[in-house]
């Protein structure tokens, strides 16, 4: 169990780092928001699952599950709001140059 939780947390950290690299490397708001959505879809999920496994069956585990549910409900809403605001403010999405 303990080993599983460590593996989960490490895998989650990997995705969080990849997302951070993505935010730096990608060219504009729109594509960067894809990298950010990577953090909550797998990064935070795996870290929280790891913590839940570490806690075992207890009230803390239920609270972590509640946090996960809220995360999955709220994050798409926030990501959508950000991207829509950028689009309405007139930002032009970055395009690959035709070669």
């Amino acid at each position: 169990m303990e080993v599983m939780s460590i593996i989960c947390i490490l895998a989650g950290l990997f995705f969080l780092i990849v997302a951070a690299i993505g935010v730096i490397r990608l060219p504009d708001v729109f594509s960067r928001s894809h990298a950010v959505s990577l953090t909550d879809s797998l990064g935070a999920f795996l870290v929280l699952v790891g913590v839940a496994l570490h806690e075992g069956l207890s009230p803390s585990m239920l609270k972590i599950i509640a946090v996960l549910a809220l995360l999955y409900i709220q994050n798409p809403v926030i990501a959508h709001a950000t991207v829509r605001a950028a689009l309405r403010a007139g930002l032009k999405p970055w395009k690959k140059e035709a070669s």
Partner: peptide, 14 residues
């Protein structure tokens, strides 16, 4: 819309 936004690589913009 939420499902599309949750899947990385696609975001509902409007």
């Amino acid at each position: 819309g939420n499902s599309i936004t949750l899947t990385p690589g696609t975001i509902t913009a409007e």
